[in-house]
């Protein structure tokens, strides 16, 4: 029963990362949408103009330097995210999209433009982060000893691989957050979720 819990943890971590970086879906809101990585007003992406001002077909909801994030993209991601996490807000989804944009910009400096966004991000994280993460044997053993009670009588050799995978994903996630935090500090990011800047005539 306990070893099954570990399995679930590992699978969940892997899923969240995969979902975030492969499909771009905001499947990791607690971490990537957190206040630590930026904040945004909550609410719908209402058009900035009042009633009668016309129908807005699409508009910018945020930008990261010279990359725009559009209302249409946000709504599509938000709809997808709600299926996975019903309580998620647009602002949280937007933060994950900003993070993804930051990573994609780095990935695009290395990988050819013919490569898809998802593939470029996946390969970039593999190259930049995953390749450098090594879980020492002592950390696996330590985790096993601390959680032995939860894992029942499962012998170390049987759960070792799964613990290593879990710890590795956790470490990758931590380093990724650190890396994104660094990127955020250097980028000019603005969010126009509920309001637009004044337009000069």
């Amino acid at each position: 029963m306990r070893s099954r819990k570990i399995k679930i943890h590992a699978a969940a971590a892997a899923f969240l990362l995969t979902a975030l970086f492969v499909s771009g879906a905001p499947a990791f809101p607690a971490a990537l949408g957190s206040a630590a990585l930026g904040s945004a007003a909550l609410g719908k992406t209402n058009p900035p103009c009042g009633p009668g001002a016309g129908k807005i077909l699409d508009r910018t909801v945020a930008f990261v330097d010279d990359d725009a994030i559009l209302s249409s993209e946000l709504e599509a991601r938000y709809a997808l995210a709600r299926k996975l996490a019903p309580g998620i807000t647009r602002a949280q989804v937007l933060q994950t999209m900003i993070n993804r944009t930051l990573l994609l910009r780095q990935a695009r400096q290395i990988f050819p433009p013919a490569m898809s966004d998802e593939q470029a991000i996946r390969q970039f994280t593999d190259f930049k982060i995953r390749a450098f993460v090594v879980v020492p044997e002592s950390a696996v053993r330590d985790f096993y000893e601390k959680n032995k009670a939860k894992m029942g009588s499962a012998p170390y050799e049987r759960v070792r691989g799964r613990i290593e995978r879990l710890l590795k994903e956790k470490e990758i996630n931590r380093r990724l957050l650190d890396y994104i935090r660094t990127l955020r500090q250097k980028a000019d990011i603005r969010v126009f979720l509920t309001n637009a800047p004044p337009i000069f005539r």
Binding site: P47, P48, C49, A53, G54, K55, I56, L57, D58, R59, T60, F63, D65, D66, D67, A68, L70, R190, F192, A196, P197, I199
Partner: peptide, 17 residues
């Protein structure tokens, strides 16, 4: 809109009817 943003001079663009 994304293409126009690459120009690097915009912070907001909306297109409507």
């Amino acid at each position: 809109i994304k293409r126009a943003f690459k120009k690097g001079i915009f912070e907001y663009i909306s297109v409507g009817l």
